[in-house]
């Protein structure tokens, strides 16, 4: 669906079903250089199984207008504005990588709106090699290639796909080269408040971490889980791009965790 946020057109995927604010809402927040399409294999299930889904493209990404936001703090505040624009008061926030840092900022700014937090392939800090940012500024294609070689685990590198006939690396690459990757990476690199914000929150949290994650290593993810007293699911044999690489297992973790919170209330 399309809506106006701060005077600019914003697109949010709704999982193939019309958004209904009366249902429990799951907010999917994409990672660096990605957009709503990285959640294609999670959003439809939620939309067709009792939830409403919002998977927005951040400004300047995919189908959303505007300039890309240059800090995680700004992206977190934008999510607050986005939820206000969508007239949503309560969400289960799901973030991949950088998207989870944005979720932390959302929760910091509007704790009352966040029923739960789910982080996928993430950590409290996501340092980015300055050379990668420089490369991204010169060529998003080259930077995407570097990231995807690191980001996808061994199975995806061998052409294994959760969706028969598809090539996740090519799909990820096409998405990345069309988005402002350099700005996102710079925002990640500059963000230093992750641990402090994580410590300050008292929201049910789970982290779904990848055994072969070379971008947000498992150790860093587990450290944040300890800080947040979060439930942890480790998916072995996959890399950083879990929502695309291991969509079914990601979905299962999200279903179980979000479902348990909904049913406990």
């Amino acid at each position: 669906m399309e809506l106006q946020v701060n005077g600019r057109k914003v697109y949010a995927a709704t999982g193939g079903k019309e958004f209904d604010a009366k249902l429990p809402t799951v907010l999917f927040i994409h990672g660096s250089g990605l957009d709503h399409r990285s959640w294609a294999l999670q959003t439809r299930w939620f939309a067709y199984n009792g939830y409403s889904v919002l998977a927005p493209d951040f400004p300047g990404h995919s189908l959303s207008e505007g300039d890309a936001l240059t800090s995680i703090e700004a992206q977190g505040q934008w999510l607050v504005d986005f939820l206000d624009a969508a007239n949503v008061n309560r969400v289960h926030a799901v973030g991949h990588s950088q998207g989870f840092l944005c979720a932390l900022e959302l929760a910091k700014n509007a704790a009352g709106k966040v029923a739960s937090l789910s982080g996928i392939g993430t950590a409290a800090a996501i340092p980015v090699n300055p050379a990668l940012i420089e490369t991204a500024l010169e060529s998003s294609s080259k930077a995407a290639d570097l990231m995807l070689q690191w980001g996808f685990g061994q199975n995806a590198q061998m052409g294994i796909s959760a969706v028969p006939g598809m090539q996740p690396i090519a799909i990820g690459r096409q998405i990345m080269v069309s988005n402002p990757l350099a700005v996102d990476l710079q925002a990640c690199a500059n963000y230093e408040s992750g641990e402090t914000v994580a410590e300050s929150l008292n929201i049910p949290t789970q982290l779904v971490l990848a055994g072969q994650d070379r971008m947000t290593p498992l150790k860093a993810g587990k450290a944040m889980a300890k800080t947040m007293n979060a439930e942890v699911t480790v998916i072995d044999n996959y890399g950083h791009m879990l929502p695309i690489e291991a969509p079914k297992r990601c979905l299962q973790s999200l279903r179980d965790f979000i479902g348990s919170i909904e049913h406990s209330e």
């Binding site: 294999l41 439809r44 028969p164 006939g165 090519a170």
Partner: peptide
């Protein structure tokens, strides 16, 4: 059936052996 996840339903649509060939040629 509702394309909420990937997987095999019926070999007219997809098949694991055929999918290997598809992914190899796509690559």
């Amino acid at each position: 059936f509702n394309v909420e996840q990937g997987g095999h339903i019926y070999s007219r649509i997809t098949n694991p052996t055929v999918a290997v060939l598809e992914q190899r040629i796509a690559a």
